[in-house]
């Protein structure tokens, strides 16, 4: 049996959690863009990132942001002289830009990984591959998310 007092405490708590969400800074877009740029810089260390060689594959329209299948394919002979060292995946709209960093080498045989990610909102997903010669290549995909991850319960 819920007393009036307990009910009021619960209702107050719900209001507080709603207020917390509303307190997101107004320039959140810019902040997240900056966080993404910073994360990319941490990986590439100011090296130039070129488009191409990388193929990021994920559905353009996502019903459920909690499990988004994605795969990254990189064109590379995967020999000990010329191979992919690492594949990094980032998202623009999540609270943190990082998704996964995979480290592979010539023994992988093929530069391809697939996984499942959480994506919070409609925006860009970015994949960057680091080659053994130190160059970086990227691909990005714009996705539309109808049910966002991170907001499923308690907040709405």
């Amino acid at each position: 049996m819920t007393t009036r007092r307990q009910f009021l405490i619960l209702a107050g708590g719900a209001a507080v959690s709603g207020a917390v969400e509303a307190q997101l800074p107004p320039n959140i877009e810019a902040l997240r863009k900056a966080a993404l740029a910073e994360a990319v810089r941490k990986v590439t260390g100011d090296a130039q990132v070129r488009r191409g060689k990388v193929k990021l594959d994920l559905p353009p329209l996502i019903d459920n942001g909690n499990t988004v299948p994605l795969s990254v394919d990189v064109e590379s002979p995967m020999t000990s002289a010329d191979h992919v060292r690492a594949i990094h995946v980032f998202t623009e709209k999540n609270p943190q830009p990082y998704v996964i960093s995979a480290h592979l080498g010539p023994r992988a045989g093929r530069a391809r990984i697939s996984t499942r990610a959480r994506i919070a909102d409609t925006g860009t997903v970015l994949a960057i591959a680091q080659m053994s010669d130190g160059s970086f290549w990227s691909d990005s995909v714009n996705v539309v998310v109808t049910l966002s991850a991170c907001l499923e319960d308690g907040l709405i």
């Binding site: 909690n66 499990t67 988004v68 998202t91 999540n94 609270p95 943190q96 990082y98 998704v99 996964i100 960093s101 995979a102 480290h103 592979l104 992988a108 990984i113 996984t115 499942r116 990610a117 959480r118 994506i119 991850a149």
Partner: peptide
């Protein structure tokens, strides 16, 4: 093979 995972993994 090695991977670092983050909260954005499902």
């Amino acid at each position: 093979f090695r991977a670092e995972l983050h909260p954005a993994m499902a």
